[in-house]
Every structure is written in C-alpha cells, then in structure tokens.
Design a protein around this nucleic acid. Structure first.
Length: 641
DNA sequence: GGCAGGCGCGCC
DNA sequence: AAAGGGCGCGCCTGCC
C-alpha cells in the first residue's frame, strides 16, 4: 500500500477510474493523514491536514464517501469547513437495518458477517474491567496486531474502538497502513449492508391488497421497483446524508438575536441576576403569587407536595400537569396563578440566561448537538433546546444582515404518509387535496376539527372521547389505513419487530432489565417490562403491551414521515449550496433556511421542486400529494403558524 | 456525592 | 373500561 500525498492520491483515484458514484472509504488518523480505499485499491495518505486530502479528492472525483460513522470521521472535517456531497454512513445504515442505538464498528462488523453482536455497549474503551477482558480476548487470539479480524470472526476490540487512530499510538507509517486496512473493511461492511437492504421488499411495488408494515420475519417477495433503486437503498443514502447535515447544523448553529432573546427572558423571569442572592430573590418573587393561595410552606417544585396542597383547597387531581389543570381555571384562582408560574419557571430554569450563555456563541448562533436519527422511529434529535424552543422565543430567531429566513414545512405530513404507506385508495384520494382533512370530514360526515382529531387519534392510538366515535367511522371509510395501523399495533403488543416504509427496523420487544446478561447470550425468559409495584404483574403486562402497541402504531407513521422529511432535507441541502444558503434548523416537518436576501425566491422554488422530486420516487404510484407551506421571513415569529 | 427514575413541560 | 407517540431538559426524590 503506497504512501502518497493528497494530490497524488486524488490523481491515483482519478487514474484508477474512481468516478462520481463510486464509494471511497476513509479513516482519518489525527495528525498523520488518512487511509483510503475504493473497490479499485487502497491508499494510505500522509498529510497533516486530512481536510486538505478530502477536499482534493472531493474536487477531483466527488466520490460517495464511506465511513464508519459521520460523527467520528466527518464531523471534524465538516468543522474544518469541508463540504462533502454524498456519503454512506455505516453506523446510520446499521441503525436502519437493525434498529436501536448501538452503532459501533464492532457491532457493524458482526452484523455484516452474520455474527452475534460483540459484548459490551460499544462505548470507547476507558480502561475499565471490560477493556481488560477484551484485551485478553484479543491477546489470547495470538494474532498479528495488524490483523483486524480475530479467529472467531469478530473485529479485534483495539481496532473496533478506533483508539489507535489517535495521536501517539505507534509509528505514523504503520498507523496509516492500518487506517487503509480499516477503510477496506468499511467497504466490506458497506457491501454487506447494501445486499441486506436489497433483500428487503420494496413496499412501493406491494400494490393491491392490504399493506401492512413489513415484518422482517416474513420472507421478502424479492420484487423491487421496476428499473429503479430499491427504496431501502435510497433510505440508506438519505439517512447517511442526514448525518452530514447533522454535522453541519452542529457547526453552523441557528442565527439568534441575543437582544431580543434577553428581552423575552426578562419579561418572564426578570432581569439577569447579578449574584446568587438576587437569583434567590427573583425566585421568591416568582413564587409569591401562587404561595399567596397555598400558604408559605409549600414547595411548588415538588409535584406530590403541590398536589396535596391543591387537595386541601378542594382541587383533586391525579397529577398536576397543566393540561389537567387548565379546565379548572374557574374553580379557584390558584390554578391560573400556578399555570402562569409554570410558564415563567420554564423560561427561568430551562431557557433563561444560563441557557443563553451556554449555547449562544459570540457570533450569535445557537448551537447544540444533532443526531441524524433517534433510537425509536428515526427522527432527528437536537440538544440545547433547538427542538423545543418555547414559541415565545421564536421572535429571537432572526436572519442576519443581508439574509432572509425561508421557512418550509410539510403540510399534514403524517396523514399523507399514512395514506402512502398503507396504500389506502380512499385516503390517498383525500391526500390529493391541498387540505386533506376537508375531504375526510366530508366522508365521515363530521366537521373538519373532528376529522383531524380522528385521524391523529388513529395514529396515536387514542380511542377515548370524541376521537373514539370518529375512529369507528374511520374504520369504515378507510379500512386499509386502519388495518395498517392495527397490524402495527398487534405486532407491537406481541413484541414483534416491524419495518417502516423506508426500511427502518422498529424494535418493540420489551427491553431486558438493566444489568442483565449482554445481548446475544440468550433469551431472558421473561417478556415482562420493568418492575411490578402497583397493580400486580398481570395489569402491568397488559399495560406495557398496550403501550408497545401504541408505540408501534405511531412509529411506523412517525418513522416513515421522518424518512421522507430527511430525504427531502438532504436534497434541499445540496441544491442550496449554489445559492450560498444553508439549512439552519430541522424540526421534524419543518426546515429553516438561511439564505442571501436576493436568493430567497430561488430558495422557495427549490423547496417545492425538491419535494416534488422526492415524493415522486418515495410515494411512487400512490397518488398521494405532499405539499409544503413556504414563506420568506425575517424572524421565525413572522411565520403564520 | 453521584446516579437513576419520576414528573412536568417545551416542541413536533 | 380505558388507553396519545417521540425527543431533550431541569427539578425533585430515593438509592447506593
């Protein structure tokens, strides 16, 4: 394996015929260079700045980058300003194929080779007892430390944890050779993942008959979209690109007007306290109006104590949540005081000055960690309050000078997704409307708000109240859609795995109690979740089964919606590049773009264009229409919703 | 003193 | 009979 410079390797890749759509795996060795591998060979590149290497290659042949995880490999490169158009993120694809959160190289390798997942949780070694055990496992193998695969087929632990890529581990040349070898293994995993994805049945071709969420225990019928790439493979590319997007969101942050934010905070929680005494004083002042009703000794922050205090005033509630208290506003003035206090308390504790100081940089950007997919349905997640900013603080999210914010949100995404994934012809017809609740209301013979509640209740598993009655009509009018949800519910109750429309595995089996034997050591012999304290084992089992049913019912819709959303978002990301715009926030069905003012209208057009293109393949043949509500604004609060 | 879990709430 | 899903975060309690 030759040691080359950045320019030489770009040239070598080019000369070897590595083209635009070819996968090139990369493993970065801090301070030394990078190991690269394509199906046409492997290279170890010496360069102090791996970002320069990747930029050279990206420019030369714009490959499909392959890495063990974007979090590990791409994030530092993204932070250094490298733009990478496309990638295959082995960790992200592994989570699609196998569900759950675990995505370390050892688990990926084992899955690719059909082996049981290795022991441990995949967290990086920290010198604990398990590491000693693993080192012993590796050593007992008696293999060459330069050979990454053990006799039992598993990845060596000291390779899997990638600690050897850090500075000061062996001589640079040796580390670069190992990096190139590790990159070749990445290509082996990639190929295995793509094979597995192609074996999933493509739901778009499952026309006719009742669609059900795919059960991986049922053999795939092998049919795939005629002439096209299977949907699950497209999901893999989109989920991978979403990880790149997550890295960029983490780097760029959300533009925030600090002054406006401070004004909002001051209104709710008072001026910034100068010391602990002042903070305690504002806290007492905030509590006072509520304590005037309850008496001084009550701790408002202790739910049990608060509930007891309310009871002494004749207000008997099972818990003190605001939804529970809202209807009781007229019963006693303490209720209103308490609800107002809660709002202020939220700002003061979670979105107050400490939040501002911790997460808003000197450049006025709100930054937090981003993940491309959560462990349940595969939504993106964000920290630092980026996904749960109180609506009142949206006024502080503002375009920077010379820029506009383009806000684009998918209208009624979940019911439209339900129509698409279930293949319900009547619901699909309704989804041809700009406002699909109108035709649903007409069909059910109720008003629009009731229709909306009925549809959402069906997807969330709520069957009580008004929604329950409407749900029975839903069953009549849209039997396939409801059958799809019921099938997911039944699978969830039974603890069976499911797959979303795009191919993500949804695990519904009750999780083993904490501290149990490592995965792969055999069944736990019990399907009870958690401990049974109140109500007895039988009740708790029924309850948790029902909860799994509701989870599964929702996960196949929420998860599929997340896949469609990300597929759209990553296309927006690519098309935004020539406009010098960036995505600054992803919010499940909503995008905020930060765009130079004179390109805002172009950005609006591209959101519609990319959505049409994405829906055309994603929902091919379903007749379901997906619509985006798009507006150009200066502040997030200017948006209609 | 640190950690896990419950509660409550923000957003979707 | 009744039954709403997901996430992150801060506060509280109870446990070790």
């Amino acid at each position: 394996m030759p040691l080359l410079t950045a320019g030489e390797v770009a040239h070598a890749l080019h000369a070897a015929g590595v083209g635009r759509r070819d996968p090139v795996a990369v493993v970065v060795v801090a301070g030394a260079g990078a190991g690269l591998a394509s199906e046409r060979g492997g290279w170890a590149v010496r360069a102090c700045q791996p970002s320069a290497v990747l930029t050279a290659i990206e420019t030369a042949c714009a490959p499909r980058w392959v890495w063990w995880s974007a979090r590990g490999t791409a994030a530092p490169l993204v932070a250094a300003g490298v733009y990478m158009a496309a990638c295959w993120d082995l960790a992200a694809v592994h989570r699609v194929l196998h569900g759950g959160r675990r995505d370390d190289p050892g688990a990926l390798w084992a899955a690719a080779r059909g082996l049981p997942p290795p022991a441990g949780d995949g967290k990086a070694a920290r010198g604990g007892q398990l590491d000693l055990l693993a080192a012993a496992e590796d050593a007992a193998d008696g293999e060459d430390p330069d050979e990454p695969v053990r006799g039992d087929g598993q990845l060596r632990r000291d390779w899997a944890d990638e600690t050897w890529t850090r500075p000061g581990r062996g001589d640079p040349a040796g580390r670069l050779r190992r990096a190139a070898r590790f990159a070749q293994l990445a290509l082996v995993v990639r190929a295995a993942q793509e094979r597995a994805l192609r074996q999933l049945d493509d739901p778009r071709t499952r026309a006719g008959g009742t669609r059900t969420a795919g059960n991986p225990q049922t053999p795939a019928d092998g049919t795939q979209a005629a002439g096209g790439t299977p949907l699950a493979v497209l999901t893999a590319w989109a989920e991978s690109a979403a990880e790149l997007l997550a890295c960029e969101l983490e780097r760029d942050g959300l533009p925030l007007d600090r002054t406006a934010a401070q004004q909002m905070i001051a209104r709710a929680a008072g001026l910034r306290p100068r010391d602990d005494a002042e903070e305690a004083a504002t806290r007492r002042a905030r509590d006072a109006p509520v304590l005037a009703h309850l008496g001084g000794g009550v701790d408002l922050r202790n739910p049990a104590e608060l509930r007891a205090a309310l009871l002494s005033l004749g207000i008997d509630v099972p818990d003190t949540r605001s939804a529970r208290l809202k209807p009781l506003r007229d019963v006693h003035p303490v209720v209103s005081a308490l609800l107002t206090w809660r709002k202020a308390e939220r700002i003061a504790t979670t979105y107050g000055y400490r939040w501002l100081d911790s997460y808003v940089g000197p450049d006025g950007r709100l930054r937090g960690g981003w993940r491309g997919s959560d462990g349940a349905g595969g939504r993106m997640t964000a920290q630092a309050g980026l996904h749960n900013l109180p609506a009142g603080l949206r006024v502080a999210v503002a375009a920077e000078p010379g820029h506009r914010i383009v806000r684009a949100d998918l209208g009624q995404i979940e019911p439209r997704v339900l129509a698409a994934v279930s293949g319900d012809p009547a619901l699909a017809r309704a989804a041809g409307d700009e406002d699909m609740y109108a035709p649903v209301a007409a069909r059910l013979g109720c008003d629009r708000p009731t229709a909306k509640v009925a549809v959402l209740a069906a997807m969330y598993g709520q069957t009580s109240g008004v929604a329950g009655a409407a749900l029975r009509q839903m069953r009549q009018a849209y039997p396939r859609a409801i059958a799809y949800l019921d099938a997911a519910d039944a699978a969830g109750r039974a603890g069976l795995d499911l797959r979303t429309f795009g191919g993500r595995l949804i695990r519904t089996a009750p999780s083993a109690p904490a501290g149990s034997a490592p995965a792969g050591s055999g069944p736990t012999g019990s399907d009870r979740a958690g401990s049974d304290r109140a109500g007895g084992p039988q009740v708790d089992t029924d309850r948790s089964a029902a909860a799994r049913g509701r989870f599964a019912r929702n996960a196949v819709i929420q998860g599929a919606a997340a896949e469609l959303f990300k597929a759209w978002a990553v296309t927006v990301r690519q098309e935004l590049l020539p406009l010098s715009g960036t995505i600054v926030l992803c919010l499940h069905d909503e995008l905020l773009l930060h765009v130079p003012a004179d390109r805002a209208e172009d950005a609006v057009l591209l959101t519609h264009r990319t959505l049409a293109a994405t829906a055309a393949y994603w929902a091919a043949g379903s007749r379901v229409r997906f619509v985006a509500d798009v507006s150009v604004i200066d502040r997030w609060s200017d948006a209609k919703n």
